[in-house]
Write a protein that binds this DNA or RNA. Structure first.
Length: 596
RNA sequence: GGGGGCGUAGUUGAGUUGGUUACAACAUCGCCCUGUCACGGCGAAGGUCGACGGUUCGAGCCCGUUCGCUCCCGCCA
């Protein structure tokens, strides 16, 4: 470790988790918060706390005015000076790092008294305050060691990412926060311009075009740990502003990107040096899991069994089987646990939000079919199901999702799978990474009767698809694979990217397919289309969701735990009360009219 | 935009079919206590049951509206 300034020039000589037996006899100064005050009559103790830990202050030989202890209300900031001494043999605390010693206080100063009658909650101890109070008084919540540890983790992880990337020849470049509105994609946060009445900047949803322009500018290998902004509704893992590790490289193949990602994952998640991601195509992963971001730490794989039920007497199966629908089956071996009738009926509620009408089931008990839809299942069909099963056979429960809409079947099967994993406690510790490739380039937007970019409009079709792409036949475009990939960990999409379009004619065609007129394209992306004309290296990259990575490392399922000052699910900041109404003076200066 | 859950002393929770003075822990205040460290003991104070309206002899509990937090669907190129 290189020399540091350490505590030189600070009011304190040590932090609150530092003192050990070796310090006995030395004169030290500690600063921190009053964590606990214990008055045993003739004997007084204060536990002084900072983010590092606790030290016990003893007042056994305190010569000053004891009335000062009255001012040491909980959460006050105090300074204590004295000599470190070994605790009596019978008074040591093994549960504390500093439990072998205590500070024999000779001088005590209350630097800032806490108004204990007004404090909304105490950050120490086992009781957590409600979400509302925690966010309104976030600085109190941040005093909790748990949140301080996460901030530390965040900082360390960012440093590790930078180390890897810089070591691989990348440079970090800052791109503008005040940028141009892009109506494609998510809603923009918009910032009015005072100098240009009636004009607005937009905060970037991602630095996508900028990093591609850096490649065109010859930057070669770029990264940035950057903030992105999206004005969409929130979720447990989604905030209106979030952080990405944004990466772009010139002349890559997918193999390069994947190797780089593996190298980073090894460092960020402390994996084995020879770690390789499991690879799965988009089609494959959806077929097996019903989702493009499955948690693969447990099984419950699904199989498509539509063909077994074309002659079924059971309408729920026969209807999709005869009308291009889909039936998916999932087997829960008896060894995995069992489900009560109540749980099986409850599955209806699980699939409902996804458009599913219910979940059909039957049981196999001692080789006999019972319950649910068993009377529609012949021994032959069971034999066929078992021969296709990857999850075992014999006694257990078979579940079925059937619908004429394939998306409903996949989404329902995924929801059931995730529910069962929790219910049957199948989820193991650790991380399971997946590299999902060959995403479709486009998806058909039924409502607006047009194509939308599955990833974004700069994603390249697979090389062998260029000819068909430029022809632009709808049936060719429908399932066209793209040079796009996602990194999935434990059910979270922690990153995604693509090789980009670097040909002007291909990019033009993409905008055309997305239903944009040449005028739209020119107005929104004219600068970018132009740039593609003047010598563009093939390039590609990806972005990691930094907050989600920290969530996984911190083992929390709430994104607000990993952000110092998070917003609520209605995108407000309870602490500062943002957003707030602009003042009349601001509106006037910005030439904005406002309906109050 | 749609659906579910939650809202009770400063804080976290309990509160039965709608029925007397809404209960506990931590925090606060007072008294006692020389080795505690989740200190202990005795006592005190602390409530618009999120807000508004309704049903009822009577509402923390039932109904409606609304606000806030939260989870999900849509959305998130």
């Amino acid at each position: 470790m290189a020399d540091t300034i350490g505590n030189f020039g600070l009011l304190r000589s040590h932090h609150c988790a530092e003192l050990r037996a070796e310090h006995v006899g030395s004169k030290v100064t500690l600063c921190g918060w009053v964590n606990k005050y214990r008055d045993l009559g003739g004997l007084h103790f204060i536990d002084i706390r900072d983010k590092h830990g606790l030290t016990q202050l003893s007042f056994e030989e305190f010569k000053g005015d004891f009335s000062i202890l009255k001012k040491c209300s909980l959460e006050s900031v105090i300074l204590a000076r004295g000599v470190v001494r070994e605790r009596p043999e019978n008074a040591r605390n093994n549960k504390m790092d500093t439990g072998a010693v205590e500070l024999l206080v000779s001088e005590l100063e209350v630097l800032s008294q806490c108004d204990i009658d007004a404090i909304p909650f105490l950050p120490m101890g086992p009781i957590d305050a409600s979400e509302v109070l925690r966010l309104k008084y976030r600085y109190l919540d941040l005093r909790r060691p748990h949140l301080q540890k996460i901030l530390q983790l965040r900082s360390t992880t960012a440093l590790r990412a930078r180390e890897i990337l810089i070591n691989e020849g990348f440079i970090e470049v800052e791109t503008p926060i005040l940028y141009k509105s892009t109506p494609e994609g998510a809603r923009d946060y918009v910032v009015p311009s005072r100098v240009h009445p009636g004009h607005v900047y937009a905060l970037p949803q991602s630095p996508q075009t900028l990093k591609q322009l850096l490649m065109i500018g010859g930057t070669d290998k770029y990264f940035q740990i950057c903030r992105c902004f999206r004005d969409e509704d929130l979720r447990a893992d989604r905030q209106p502003e979030f952080t990405q590790i944004d990466i772009e490289v010139s002349f890559p193949t997918q193999e390069y990107i994947k190797s780089l990602v593996e190298k980073m994952l090894i460092r960020l998640f402390d994996l084995e040096a020879n770690f390789k991601m499991t690879m799965m195509s988009y089609d494959e992963v959806v077929k097996l899991y019903g989702s493009d971001k499955p948690d693969v730490r447990y099984g419950l794989k699904q199989m498509i069994v539509t063909d077994l039920f074309t002659d079924s007497e059971f309408g729920v199966f026969a209807n999709p089987a005869k009308n291009n629908g889909m039936i998916k089956a999932m087997f829960i071996p008896a060894s995995m646990g069992t489900l009560a009738r109540k749980d099986l009926d409850g599955l209806t509620d699980i699939v409902k939000p996804h458009g599913g009408k219910g979940v059909a089931f039957f049981k196999v008990e001692k080789g006999e079919l019972t319950g649910g839809v068993s009377k529609f299942i012949s021994k032959e069909i069971l034999r066929e199901l078992e021969s296709r099963s990857t999850e075992g056979k014999g006694d257990g429960i078979w579940l079925f999702n059937a619908d004429t809409d394939h998306d409903v079947v996949h989404a329902s099967a995924d929801a059931v799978r995730r529910f069962l994993a929790r219910k049957l406690e199948l989820i193991k510790e650790g991380y399971a990474f997946l590299w999902v490739y060959d995403f479709p380039l486009l998806e058909w937007d039924k409502e607006n009767n047009r194509f939308a970019a599955r990833h974004h409009p700069f994603t390249s079709p697979k090389k062998d698809q260029y000819e068909k792409f430029l022809k632009g036949q709808k049936e060719d475009l429908m399932n066209m694979p793209a040079e796009a990939y996602d990194i999935v960990c434990n059910g979270y999409e922690i990153g995604g990217g693509s090789l980009r379009i670097y040909r002007n004619d291909v990019q033009d065609q993409m905008f055309k397919i997305l239903g944009m007129t040449p005028e739209d394209t020119k107005r929104q992306f004219g600068f970018f289309i132009d740039a593609l004309k003047f010598g563009t290296p093939p390039h590609g990259g990806l972005a990691f969701g930094f907050d989600r990575i920290i969530m996984l490392l911190a083992k929390t399922d709430s994104i607000s735990d990993v952000i110092a000052f998070p917003k609520t699910t209605s995108a407000t900041d309870l602490m500062s009360q943002a957003p707030s109404e602009p003042s009349d003076a601001q509106l006037k200066e910005l030439h904005f009219k406002w309906d109050r």
